[in-house]
Simulated scan of single mutants.
Amino acid sequence: MKFWFALFIASSMLFFNGCSSDKKKTEAKSEKVQEEVKNEKIILQDVSGKEIVVTPLEKGFSFSGYENKVVLVNFFATWCPPCKAEIPHLNNLQEKYKDNFVIISVLLEENKSNEEISNFMKYNNIHYIITNGIENFKLAQRVGGVKNIPLMFLYDKEGKYSTHYVGAIPEEMIDADIKKVL
């Protein structure tokens, strides 16, 4: 009887605990894959075809071609009234800090041609970069998801996250934050 009881306990332990080491290996692999995806570079393309390689950093991003500049990433859509209302303010900030600052607007609309976006830029007198393409949505996911637009993220000259803005924000508030990180 003791033999059968011991056999029952041993087989129960194997049954209930037999996959735990494999599960840990699977979870470890999954975490490794997620980490690799998290560290994967994103290649944005502006409407003129210029590529901007976005490289994840520990607490932010670096933007190729804009090293040592303060970067304001602006997620927007052409149909969004608050997004359109902020255009003159963003133009003012781009002009005021043109040597040390760049605005990269990330369009979150599908099936917009670069020609349509170029016409939108001309019509609205936009003087900053607008990117267009599927990679824009990858960047939106990488920053934690974009649920509301406009949504902007400010990064210092080293690419470190400084602050973010949800919705239409007064130009003076963004200006003050830019001065802090310059």
Rank of each mutant, 00 (worst) to 15 (best):
I169G: 00
N114W: 04
I42Q: 07
H89W: 02
V181N: 01
H89C: 02
L182V: 03
A140W: 05
N136R: 08
V73G: 02
Q34M: 13
K138S: 13
S20N: 14
I130K: 00
D22N: 13
N111V: 04
V102H: 02
F101P: 00
P88G: 05
A176W: 00
N100V: 09
A28F: 12
D46V: 09
V37I: 14
S12M: 14
S113V: 07
I103W: 02
I134R: 06
L182N: 11
K160A: 12
K147W: 07
E58K: 15
E158N: 15
F61L: 05
A77V: 10
H127G: 03
V53T: 15
E40F: 00
G144V: 08
V70H: 02
S62E: 07
C80S: 14
C80T: 09
E135D: 12
N68F: 01
E158A: 12
V181D: 05
P56Q: 08
W4T: 07
P150C: 10
K23D: 13
V181R: 05
E172A: 12
Y161M: 10
I126F: 00
P56A: 07
F3M: 03
G159L: 05
S21A: 13
I178K: 06
V102Y: 00
N124W: 08
I174F: 06
G49Q: 10
K24W: 05
P88K: 07
G144I: 08
I174E: 01
D99M: 05
V143M: 07
K179A: 12
F101I: 01
I9K: 08
L182W: 01
R142T: 11
M173F: 07
H164P: 00
S12H: 04
G133R: 11
D46F: 13
I129M: 02
E116Y: 11
M121R: 13
E86P: 06
E67A: 13
V143W: 01
K59E: 15
E95G: 11
F153H: 10
Y161N: 08
C19Y: 12
Y123W: 00
K24T: 09
V166Y: 03
K179V: 12
K157L: 04
S162I: 04
M152R: 06
L108C: 09
T131R: 02
R142A: 15
T131K: 05
N68Q: 12
I52V: 15
G159D: 02
I43W: 00
N68H: 05
G65K: 09
K2L: 13
N91Y: 06
I9W: 10
T55Q: 13
P150F: 02
F61Q: 01
V37F: 11
K38Q: 14
I104H: 00
L154N: 09
F8Q: 09
S12G: 14
S113C: 10
A10H: 06
M13Y: 14
Y123G: 00
T131L: 05
Y128E: 00
